[in-house]
Design a protein around this nucleic acid. Structure first.
Lengths: 168, 168
DNA sequence: ACCGAAATAGTCAGATTTGAGTATAACGAA
DNA sequence: TTCGTTATACTCAAATCTGACTATTTCGGT
């Protein structure tokens, strides 16, 4: 019983607004949510199939014009209930993230200090670049996402503070 | 070419200090590093096998007394080189984490505001509990880890600031 | 001397994830 | 009109990850 819950929550939440076909869901995620979720297209199809299996969504094939068939997903009442449960749990929970770059710091003394400084300075530049990207997203994404972007910006600021402390 | 790099870095870094057998590596990770890496025991065995396949470590079975055989891993010269490359990349890179609980916030308006407040208040308690755990780790873990713990503490503080902003 | 608990040392089937590939349609430029 | 590009819609083999399980040894207490 691994933890798809956020991803399930995401898919159900999107379908709750309106029925969608797979490609559409993936487009939306790629364009609007890529900055805060990690969910590849093929994984989304897999999860939709699972949601269907569990009775949380229905699948209906339809065809527009001459294009290939597509499967339209619609949330079921059971899906609604599940969505609410997942949402409550998600809001009440804190899942500490893992910081992939911590590992390097554990072993930093295996390199000359001067080089470590240079490398971390590069890292700092990358963080700054990421910060800029987030700031530009702030202007183009819908208002629902503002709180999330602020969330990320706060953490990026923390990251910068920390790395500058390391560089000092 | 998915990204095991941090985990590979971790395993090679441990073996760089001293040869170790699988169980020993897992013990060490569980006791000292669980707070900053996510690596299950069976996954570690899998990755060690891969490192062996790629020539970065050698495997030698040995037996102490009557206990079951165990495989002792030792880093090779190629492994050393690889370790340094991974370390340099890791230090220079910034990999933004994903925050699993962001999703809930996107959909928070599907619940009554009062309930959202209660749920987020619970989340805040969980963050505080996590903060305490980190602070107690600070006293028992070796000095190499202090920078990492500070890193986590800074982010936890950022998280608290953000959630309090949401609650206001 | 015997028993239960903990430590030692992994294995493996099954779940999950993804990159690469498949196939058709619409669209614009030359 | 023809040909390359982009959009539409997935599929699937292969890589990855993990929970549950197996099996033996040591050790402390009674």
């Amino acid at each position: 019983m691994p933890d798809h819950s956020e991803r399930q929550l995401l898919l159900l939440g999107l379908l709750r607004r309106q029925e969608m076909h797979g490609y559409q869901i993936n487009e939306f995620i790629d364009e609007q949510m890529a900055f805060c979720v990690d969910l590849k297209r093929s994984t989304a199809y897999y999860l939709l199939e699972r949601l269907r299996h569990e009775g949380y969504v229905t699948e209906e094939t339809e065809r527009t014009g001459n294009r290939p068939e597509r499967r339209v997903y619609r949330i079921t009442p059971a899906g609604e209930t599940h969505f609410q449960a997942l949402l409550r749990t998600n809001l009440a929970t804190y899942t500490p993230p893992t910081y992939a770059n911590d590992i390097g710091l554990i072993f930093h003394h295996h390199l000359p200090p001067a080089e470590v400084r240079t490398l971390l300075e590069t890292r700092r530049q990358n963080i700054l670049a990421h910060q800029q990207k987030l700031k530009s997203l702030e202007t183009i994404l819908p208002a629902d996402h503002l709180a999330i972007i602020r969330h990320h910006l706060i953490h990026v600021a923390a990251e910068l503070a920390w790395i500058e402390e390391q560089l000092t």
